[in-house]
Amino acid sequence: MKNTIIIIISILLLVFIFSGCGPEKKKVAVLIYDMEDPFIKGVSEYLKAFDQKSYDITYYDSQKSQIVQNKIAEKLYKEGVDLLVINPVERLSSYIFVKKSLQEEIPIIFFNREPLKEDLEYFEDVYYVGTDARESGMMQAKLISEGLGNDTENLGGFDKNGDHIIQCVILKGEQGHQDAEERTKSVIEGLKGEGFKVEVLHTKVANWNETKAYRAMHEIMSEFGEDIELLISNNDAMAIGASKYLMDNGYFGMEVDGVVTDIPFRIVGIDGLEEAKLLTKKGYMYGTIINDGKSMAEAIMQLSEYILENDEEKLQYELVDNKYILISYKYHSNE
């Protein structure tokens, strides 16, 4: 009887020893601000694709709530984690993670929403991977300019009223949101820089959201419909929403060979979502600026390895000030 017990205990011990034999994988937690955001969802899918299973990576959805994100982070700090990858809900609130990480000595990579500079500099093991919002607006302006054949006089034939001024409507992401403000500002600046005259007929805040943009289009079209020569959207989701409203309400002509024949005005977005690319191909949208989620994910993965393994060779992206990796935008149009 005693012998049997001893044998069973020994076997159990052996099982435990052997099962725990392999080196423990380092834990990485990825906190996403909103899994319903198509671009961010894309980034997290790319992250999963780049995951070489050398780390134990867990993804958390903050559901657009800083409180939820704080709760997740609190749990992670308590349980212990080797690296935090955070897509903040509120950029101004990010300082609490930096302070906590300094206490707990856990490195953080922030991405896509940039915390304040002072917060990033508060602790040396805090990094940021993102894009330059200003760049996206500038590139959006360039895309528009090229689409108009750089014709500042006659606007490449898109000057409906012949006043040599671009009458445009802007779909803005969020009032006061850094990226929204920056993109809105820089695209206008960019167009002016290219020599165009621009009249913003209306700026509508649609919170980066497709449905909100769809609804907003009703009011916009009834008020400014005839006068609009260009629709600038801060992101693709809102551009898609606007396109769908116009489609559903008969503003577009027939499709011939998969390409729409008549359009009310040009629509440009930012982000390079697959759906936006498809709409661009069919002619419903003029083009988009690819916010390169794939490169962003790749940079995050490489930076993670760089931080966890201290292996500089793995990092193919430029690490500015040993803190920032900025991912460049790319054009996407049907031309």
């Binding site: 800083q66 409180i67 704080n70 509120e90 101004l92 609130s93 300082y95 609490i96 006061g176």
Partner: peptide
């Protein structure tokens, strides 16, 4: 303890 949005 939680953060208040839009503020520090």
């Amino acid at each position: 303890i939680n953060t208040i949005g839009s503020t520090r």
